[in-house]
Every structure is written in C-alpha cells, then in structure tokens.
Design a protein around this nucleic acid. Structure first.
Lengths: 343, 343
DNA sequence: GAACGTTCTGGGAGCGCTCCCAGGTTTTGC
DNA sequence: GCAAAACCTGGGAGCGCTCCCAGAACGTTC
C-alpha cells in the first residue's frame, strides 16, 4: 500500500479579525469593539467594520474568543441518560426547541451532554473547566447531586423540573401541583365519586407533585385518596397500574393519570376490561403530548408547555450570566386544562 | 441602590497543563503527548503524567486546543427548523441518542444548531469557520443546498435521510423503498385487492421512496397503484388523506401509511366512517414509533431504527475525520416488519 | 570508536482573539 | 478661556494549548 495521497486538509485560509481591520481601515481593537457591541465606537468606524465583515464573510473564531476572554459563549444542556429514556422523547425535544428558540439571535452555542453511569466526574471536570458559561440540567432522578456540585463550583446552573435533592439550585418547573389539582377538581365536578390516580415514580418530583395535587383536589371534596398506583412513565406501566386499580376497586369511575404516555396504557387496559371511556371511567392525563389528541378516545389532559419550560430555563440562565440580580430562586409555569372526550 | 456586591466571578483557578507538567516533573510537551496518546513517551513519564492528572483533576482547555491545533474536537448536528417540526420529535430524539451513543468515549463534543429562515449564511459562515470538524445534517426539505455548500467548502458532511438535491454528499438512510415494498407485499399476501397509500410530502425523499416501494410491491402483484394521497407527517393530514381515499374508493380494503403519525389520523377517520380495522381495512404504518404499539388497534408497521441511523451517520463522519478512505458514498439501513393487529 | 539510527525530551513560536493601558480628540462646565 | 470629563482609537500582552525543531540518551552497525 503506497498510500500516496496527501491528507486532504487545506483548511484555514479563514478571514481573521486582522484582515477585517485592514479592510475597514481601523485597528483590531475597534473591530473587536464593534463585534462585541461595545460603546465608544464612532458610527463611521462601526459602519466600515460592518461592511468589511459582510464583504469578507468573516465569522469570529470562537475558540480564540473563549481563550482570550472570560466567556465561552456556550452553554451546556445536560441530560441524565437514564432520564432521557424514561421521560421519553417528546419532553426532551420540546425543551430543546425552547432552549434553542430562546438562544436564537444570541451568539451562544449549545452543547449537549448526557451524563452516564461512570463518567460523572469527567462531566463535572469538563463543565467546571471553563468550557461553558452555564449549565441547564434536565431529567433528574432522585437525589442526583449533579446540580449541587455544579452550583457549588460556581457554575451558573438551572434545573428543569423541581430537583428533589438540590436545595438552593434555581429551577423552573411546570406547576404540576395545581395542574393535577385542577384535574381532580374537574373529575369531581363531573360527579365522579371513586377517583383513582396513576402516579409517576416516587423518586421524581414531577410524579410526587402531581400526586399531591390530586390528593388535595380530592380531599377538598372529601373524597377518598386511597386509590393510588404507580408507574414509570411508560405505557406498559400505565396498563399494569390500571389493571391493579381495577382489581382493587372495580367500581372506580375516574382516573387521573400523571402522564399521557401512561394514560395510553391505562386506556388499553380499560378497553380490555370492557370499560367504556368516559361513560364508565373518565380519564384525565397530563402533559398534552401529541398522542393525547390522537388517542382513542382523544384524551382530556392537563397541558404543560415544555417548550416554554426550555425557554424559561434558558432565560433564567442567561439573565444570571448577564449579571442580573434578585432573580427568583424558582419559577413555576402555569398549566392548562384541555378538554377532549375521555373525561 | 448601593450595589455593593462585587461581581461573583472568580473563576479560573483551573489547573493548566503546565502545572501538570510541574507536578509530574516533565515538560509541557510531554504532557501534551500523553494526553494525545502519541508514541515516543517513556512509560515512566506516561505514568507520572497520568498520576498528576488524576491528582489535580486536570481537564484540558478545549478552546486552547482548538486554537492551537487544527481540530476542534467538536461536530455539529444541524437540523432545519421546519424539518424538526414536521418530522416530529421522536425521529429527532432517536437520531440524537444514536449520535451520542456513538460519540461516547470519544473526546468529541456535539453542538446543536438549527437552521432558520434568514440565517443560512450565518450558519455556513460559522460551520466553515473551523469551529467544528464535521457536520451531521438532518431533516432536509426539498433541494436544500446546505449539504452541498458545506461539502464544497471542504467540511466533512454526512446527511441523515437521502437528500434530494445534494448529489455526491454522503448520506445514511433507512431502506425506505424496500420497507415500503415489504409492507405492500404483506398486504397483498393477506389477500387485499384494493390497496391505497398515504404518502409523505413530494419534496422529501423519505416520502417518495416509500411511495415508490409501495408502487413496486403492488405492480409486481399486478394491482392498481392509483390510490395515492399525500400528507405532511401530521395526524391531521393523515386523517384528511384517508377521508379523501375513502371517497375516491369506498371499497378499499387496505392502506399503507408512510408514517405512523399519519396512520394515527387515518385510524381516526376509518373509525369515524365505521370501518373496522383490520377487518374492513388493513392498515400498515411506517417508523414503529412508540405510538404504533399503543394505537387502537396496535399498528402493524415497518420498523426503522432511528437510533441506529444516528449512530451510523456519526460513525461515517468520524471515519472520514480519521482519514479513512474508500468510504461508501451512502449507507442504507434495513427495516423490519412488525406485525400487530391493524393488518 | 565513528557514524548512524531510534527513542525520548524540552524549548518556544504562534493559533486569533480580548482586554488593559496609554494617548488623542472632542465636548462640556464654569 | 482652560481644565475636566467624555468619547474614540491603536498597541500589545497573554489566554492554554499544539506542534515544529533541536538536541539528549541510548542503541546498532561497520
């Protein structure tokens, strides 16, 4: 093998800031000021620089900016691997879209990282290594110490979804409690008397908050709150939980399912047991994923705006990076009831 | 407001390569060699450096590496905004998972970019600016010139899903044609005679390839291929298309829907028209999203492994970056039929 | 033992930017 | 009118690394 090819590299005839400066007839410093939108640049110089940039198709070298400056112009979105699987795709994709929407126009890149089993230390090293300015963390399970660790290391961090174990780290979440309470109240208002719930896993705040809301809604109406089953945000677990509830209380006439995905499974079980929805059993879900409207029957559910969640997390983080003070320690996003046919 | 707080910055007491060198009693060069796995380092020195790195919790500054070296250790995943909406979330999330899985262990970061209306030029500037070593592009509509532009600029690029307008740019795709043909043949084997299809948009290869496969499958059985309706990968469009087909051919006894998401809508329309599935009309989808198994009835469909798609794209790109030669210009991933209740 | 490899090592020039400093040119204040 | 402030500009050090170059230490060969 003669391997006579020379490596097809030949990158790098990239316009540099200096060339822009020359073309605009100003100094590097001035170009830098224009790029960074600093004051104290004459409009004439600014104009000349913009022209030169346009003509040369200049794009600043991020690596150099990061190295020289103090900012990386880059934030990380960290997803716990396990979580991304469990919380399922639509949630993640929605958040991502929101993050991106909020970042649009700002010259900030998004790097995606998934935390895996063994490499937490690597992850922390990397994140705290000045490669990113701030971190967005989603999909926390249990008492994940990651946000605390990052925050303690002085890295601005915002968590998506109330973290169970990271007191003090700012977070943004949907108002799961009130959303679930509204669902419960709605079922009560329909005249349902024997109302069950399928809750999410006990080690996730989202599951527990929705469970609490449901309980509050029922107890205010002086109804029993004993019909609780647990799932893990999969259709299968919803089906199993529903079967369990049906066995424990064949007379139940409504169920609030703490996630549309699980509601799908519950619907199948109800169907298999010959229960009509909503006539025999009313079903209310949570999330309002696309599948909610296409379920049979279309699912009445509590809508949470995951895209807004992503936006808000990003806004909160960027505000902190911009040095704003007295930012709220947490933010709760409103939910909305969407009435379809299942209840 | 006295604003007496001094900005809580105080980052940067980060271990630098030089400190590692001092701790290990070697030079910067040697440390660099160890980090980059170069030969010509005595095992003694290598050992000492590893120890020092471990003790100091050193993590190399990527910005500096990128600036000094020629590689950015970073690849971009570009999604056309529109596409991400249309092709819906599960596809994207699956690909992303695959990309990440393939990247695991390699010291390569993933940055995510969405191309928007006006900012294509910005995007191209940025990508060609040496900030990334290579690009993964997904969700192309029509004759998107982006891959061509990037490839012409000498940036290694791999497209996910056969691009319609970017001849010569390497791509990875599911074998949509054969998958669709298998679906058609299956319906034929069930004894169905009047088989329709709901295809994806005409400006996306994925839609056209599946349509072609369906046509081939039917014509081999000498059946008519006139019952074609088009949707846009939304449940609503599936519902509309199904209604249209039903009007044109009330006697149709099977339909191949070019995407599970549209199949959901088709199922609703069939139900509304009093058609039993699969007794009156057999339905086969494509994709095997989670919703396929939870549909009512559970959907028979052609499974494509989007995670594998992401992995393969990444593998192909990394291979190119590693200088491998004679890489295949495109790769087709097998699909698999999943038989459930709808056909 | 001189001449040549082969393996290992350190020094130091930049990569392209930001940001500090020093200095020049206006405007303002009294 | 003249000092002080406000505005604008350019020069240049240095961010933390890679990579080239020169050279040391060790063979191996004639």
């Amino acid at each position: 093998m003669t391997d006579a090819v020379d490596p097809p590299k030949a990158r790098r005839p990239n316009t540099r800031l200096e060339e822009v400066a020359r073309a605009a007839g100003v100094s590097k410093s001035t170009v830098s000021r224009v790029i960074n939108g600093e004051p104290y640049v004459s409009s004439k110089a600014r104009e000349a620089v913009h022209q030169a940039i346009g003509k040369l198709g200049y794009s600043p070298n991020q690596a150099a900016r990061t190295l020289a400056g103090s900012r990386a112009n880059c934030i990380a979105l960290v997803v716990s691997e396990q979580g991304s699987r469990v919380l399922a795709d639509p949630f993640f994709a929605g958040v991502l879209r929101g993050v991106h929407a909020e970042l649009a126009g700002k010259r900030v890149q998004l790097v995606l990282m998934m935390s895996k089993e063994g490499d937490e230390q690597d992850l922390v090293n990397y994140l705290c290594g000045g490669h990113v300015d701030g971190v967005l963390v989603i999909s926390l399970h249990g008492q994940d110490p990651l946000p605390r660790t990052l925050a303690d290391a002085g890295l601005p961090t915002v968590v998506g979804g109330r973290p169970l174990g990271a007191g003090g780290v700012p977070y943004v979440d949907s108002d799961n409690f009130n959303g679930a309470m509204e669902a419960a109240r709605y079922l009560v208002s329909l005249g349902r008397k024997r109302i069950a719930t399928i809750a999410g896993p006990r080690d996730m705040a989202v599951g527990m908050d929705r469970l609490s809301g449901w309980k509050r809604g029922l107890s205010q109406a002086r109804l029993d709150t004993d019909l609780v089953a647990y799932g893990d945000f999969t259709p299968e677990s919803g089906a199993v939980a529903m079967a369990d509830l049906l066995k424990r209380a064949p007379d139940l006439d409504a169920v609030f399912v703490g996630a549309d995905i699980m509601a799908l499974g519950a619907l199948q079980t109800l169907h298999a047991h010959g229960k009509r929805v909503p006539d025999d059993v009313a079903v209310v879900g949570f999330d309002d994923l696309m599948i909610a409207s296409t379920a049979v029957p279309p699912l009445t559910t509590i809508r949470q705006d995951v895209e807004q969640l992503g936006r808000t997390m990003t806004w909160r983080l960027m505000a902190e990076l911009a040095g704003e003070e007295n930012l709220p320690p947490f933010l709760l996003l409103p939910t909305a009831m969407v009435t379809r046919s299942s209840a």
